[in-house]
Simulated scan of single mutants.
Amino acid sequence: MTKPQIAVFSGPRSTIANSPTLVTSDKGRLETDSYLQRRFDHLVPQYLHEPVTVRIRKYSAHPLEQDAEEVYHDNGENFFEVLLTPEDGAYLLPYVARRDDGSGTGTPFEESDLRNPDINYGGRQTFFPDASKVFEDIDRGISGRDSKGTVGVLNSIADYKFIRALPPAGYTKNGEQAGVDFFPYSPRPIGKFLTSASLAKATNIVQSAINSGEFDGFIWLEGSPHLEETLYWFSLLIDTALPFVGVSSQRPHGELSNDGDRNIVDAARYIASQPLTGMGAVGIVDEQIFAARSFKKGDARPGGYRSTGGHGGVLGSANNEVKIWYKPVYKTLSTS
C-alpha cells in the first residue's frame, strides 16, 4: 500500500523543534578545565566521520540477559564485533567540541554561555531550522524504541516533506535574520515574537502546499503557548478537507522525558488513519485529539492542555490505534 505524503511545517518559537544546548563532555575537557563530574559523561547524537569496528560486551543490554544465556547463540567470544558506518545515522557519542576563545586550545561550551552577552549568548542556535533532524532522531531510536522493540516508526507510517513556514531557527550565513526569517524564544534576551504579517505569510505558504495536491495531510509545529491561536486562525482561513494537525511540546527534543516526539508520531498516525472528512483542524497532544476551536494550554507541563467552552472539545484519542469519538458540526477549514 502506498504510504501517505505528509507536509510538516516548522512554526515559530517551537519547543518541539528545540534542543538542550550543546555542552562539552568531560572527554572533551582538558586538565586545566572545570569538569562536570557527573556519574556518566553525557552523550549527544552525532555522525561518525568514517567506519569503525567496535566490540560490544555480551549480555550488557539488560541486567538479566545472562540469566537466560542458554537461549543465546554462543559465538565463542565474550563480545560481539560490529562495523559502524556514517551511513547508519547518528550515534550517541561524547560531545567534544570546544568554543574558540582566542587561546590555542579553546574552552568548553557551557550552559551558562546562553546568558553571557559578551559572547553573544553562546553564538549558537538550539532550535532546528526544520523538523527533518527531529524526525530522523525519532526514527533512529535516539529518544527510545517503539512498543515492538524496534525503530523507524515514522518512516513506517508515511513519507514527509519539511517546509520552513515560520521556522524557529535560521541560516544566518545565508542572510536569514531572527524576527524576519525565523523566530526563536531563546536565548531569552534575543528571542523574537511573531507579527500579524508573518502569520499572513505562513497562511499563504500552507495554502500553497495544500494547493499543490502533493499531500494527504499536514502537521504544523509551534510553541505551546501560541499553537492554540494559530490553529484557530488556520481553521478559519485554510481551504482543505484533508487532515490538518497542530502539535507542540512542553520539553525540548532530546531532553529527559520529552513529550513532543510522541506527539509527532501520534499526529502522523492520525493522518494515516484517514480520519472522517470534516474533522477540521485538530491539536494532538498527550494522546488526545482536540478540536482547534476548543484547544487551550492551561498549564506548562505535559497534560496541561484543556478543552474550553464547557461543551467537550476532545474528539478522540491518538495512540497505536486512533479512535474518533466525536465530529465537530461547526464550519471549519474548507467549509469555513
Rank of each mutant, 00 (worst) to 15 (best):
G260S: 14
F109P: 01
R13N: 15
T195K: 14
V96A: 12
K27L: 05
P252M: 06
G298F: 02
T15C: 09
I238D: 02
R115V: 03
A165Q: 05
A281F: 12
N258E: 15
N116H: 09
E321L: 07
K297P: 10
H226K: 10
K27S: 05
G312T: 09
G179T: 02
L84T: 11
Y95T: 01
T172N: 08
V285N: 06
K3L: 10
G213Q: 14
G316W: 08
Y171R: 09
S112P: 02
K192T: 06
V282E: 00
S132F: 02
Q125L: 10
N320S: 15
S273G: 00
G309R: 02
A7C: 08
E111W: 10
Y270I: 04
T150F: 03
A300R: 07
N78Q: 01
E65G: 10
Q5L: 10
R57L: 03
E50Q: 15
L36Y: 00
G254C: 04
M1T: 11
G254I: 10
P4N: 12
L93Y: 06
S208L: 05
Y305E: 12
T203I: 00
Q288Y: 13
P184W: 02
V8E: 06
P167T: 13
N320F: 12
F295L: 03
V245D: 10
K323Q: 15
V285D: 02
V245F: 14
A97Q: 07
D88I: 05
A267W: 14
D41F: 01
P94A: 07
I6G: 06
R145G: 04
S235C: 06
G76N: 05
G104H: 07
A90P: 09
G144A: 13
G11H: 07
T332M: 03
P168N: 02
V23I: 15
S224K: 03
V151P: 04
V245Q: 11
R269V: 03
N263S: 12
D26H: 06
A202N: 12
H42N: 06
V180Q: 15
Q274S: 14
